[in-house]
Design a binder for these strands. Structure first.
Lengths: 336, 336
DNA sequence: CTGTTAGCGCTTTCAT
DNA sequence: ATGAAAGCGCTAACAG
């Protein structure tokens, strides 16, 4: 902890503590002359205000929290980048919490945040979240809360998402047009808004092209990578294996690549794969991969901007913003 | 901010504030009976302590800061994952700051942290850092500081790094053994410990195999992606272009892939590339890529563990830890 | 324009 | 075993 505080500064300057405080906050009550002296002395002694004293008194922390399932994930890393950019502009600090897809972690994190440690919370739900009690409880304490990407489906709240349904539809359509007759869909969890909607788009695309939907082809994966690999392997080992795969999240696409690699299945000749992915180098490393790329950085920026509007009460009364951004479909020569 | 505090709790229970406080901290001065009552009431009213009051009083924040150049970067994302894991175990909060490779940002961030907002700092320097004044200043306030990966070379301090010199040596040797006659080296900045050491390894490998070192083949890149692309393009457009490239950081490898893609240069037939990379899927997407992979997650864990040892004063007096982990060289069929 | 004063909510002696 | 009281460092009325 720093040992040089307002008291010390004021003694050094022969001023009262409050005058020094006001000078430092550039109050109109203080003469330009004094301000200069104070600033100079603060600089000289390398004065750094104690943030806790200030937060305690002013009842604001100049800090926001970001709660996400994981960080070693291109989407979330980019989103955080966008969030940090906005936060930095506003002079806010950013606390990051990882839930590792565990509802328990999410719950306890949110509970801790009710202590007033932050002025606002950005959150992307974990795959197991099936209750919103902790979230409404946080909301009730008056702390602004914005959901991004993985949002609750049964709660009125501000959200920033992408066009999941449309993207799922288009991705599937892409595979159909590329000649696929049997398309599997890898989903994370039916509880999750994103996969739920993406799968719905998949189903409707099949319907549109009069392809019958086979429930066994919609595979709900777990949070265990090993078991996901096995399930995918089993799927692709079948004689009548699918000729197309729609992976609703990047991680499952990577698992698919891995299995194909192991089984010597050629993409796209033997299996066409399309996935949500923010692996920006994927098509550089393998030019035949089609992806749906979310504007992750923009999602981060939009979410943070919305949150700050709420913190600064610049958003009206009980208006609830729902921002939807567009993903981009990057089609490669998978039809070749 | 929460409205339910110790005062309210104590009124509800008919106890004094201090007794309630002690009960919640499980003090031996309080009877088991009372503790139970207090805990129950705290639970019932969903009491969350005000972290600022506590921090102000106890002069500790239960928070650490992580200062890194960027987050949309596989190495740093994984490192943060490791850091968060340890921090979470210890019940600490994690503040993240991005410098975006700007020395100014780094300086002002470090300066802010002198206010006592955190109990310790983990930092990986930005490419332009050429002074350690801000760092020694932070150190002098008594806040424990651990450097990881990008560490200062002119300052006695605890560090967690990988075997950069050896890896650079081996990577270059790999290219030489694969038949390369003219090997270029893409460096980020000579100010940076990691690239400095990696380039040194490159130079010594050339020496060992009696290949003359051409200073024009050691290319110091900038923080501007566009201009890096142009430099690489120019390098590869030459009639006597190199037949091997050693990229000291992942970003430059990706730029290289990109240029090769554009110029229709085949990797590895026409150009062998090896790079530091934590793009775990690289070889999945293109099986001919060789990489040096750093144990990023472990680096994060080790750094955080070391920091906590320092915070808890479990590390002796003026002992300075220097932890070096090993990278792994993943050799692919680039010699074919 | 400057100073005095009363807390913010919590921890921690020190009494009882 | 419990309570009274001081104070962490800062801000914001309110006086002067």
């Amino acid at each position: 902890m720093p040992n040089i505080n307002l008291k010390r500064l004021s003694e050094e300057l022969g001023l009262s503590i409050s005058s020094v405080s006001k000078a430092l906050r550039d109050s109109y009550e203080i003469s330009a002359e004094t301000k200069k002296r104070v600033l100079a002395m603060a600089e000289k002694l390398n004065y750094q205000p104690n943030p806790f004293a200030s937060s305690l008194r002013r009842k604001k922390s100049i800090t926001i929290a970001v709660v996400i399932p994981e960080i070693a994930n291109n989407f979330f890393a980019l989103a955080i980048d966008g969030i940090q950019m906005v936060a930095q502009e506003k002079g806010y600090h950013v606390l990051t919490y990882l839930t590792h897809e565990s509802f328990q972690n999410e719950e306890s994190t949110i509970k801790h945040l009710q202590g007033g440690r932050v002025d606002g919370v950005l959150i992307s739900l974990c795959r197991d979240t099936d209750s919103t009690k902790h979230l409404t409880s946080l909301h009730e304490t008056g702390i602004p809360l914005v959901f991004f990407d993985r949002v609750p489906e049964t709660m009125e709240c501000p959200t920033v998402t992408t066009d999941d349904y449309e993207s799922g539809f288009k991705a599937t359509e892409h595979l159909i047009k590329a000649g696929c007759k049997k398309i599997a869909c890898l989903s994370l969890s039916s509880l999750l808004s994103i996969t739920h909607k993406r799968v719905h788009g998949y189903q409707d695309a099949l319907k549109k092209y009069n392809m019958k939907e086979d429930p066994k082809l919609i595979i709900e994966c777990t949070n265990n990578n090993q078991s996901n690999l096995e399930v995918i392997k089993k799927l692709l080992a079948k004689k009548d294996r699918p000729d197309g795969i729609f992976a609703t999240v990047e991680k499952l696409a990577i698992s698919t690549y891995y299995v194909c690699n192991e089984m010597k299945l050629k993409i796209p000749q033997q299996l066409k794969v399309i996935s949500f992915s923010n692996l920006r180098t994927a098509s550089l490393l393998n030019p035949s991969l089609s992806t749906i790329t979310q504007p992750a950085f923009e999602i981060g920026k939009e979410s943070a901007s919305l949150l700050f509007r709420m913190i600064e009460k610049k958003t009206f009364g009980n208006r609830i913003d729902k921002i939807v951004l567009k993903s981009s479909l990057i089609e490669r020569n998978s039809s070749r």
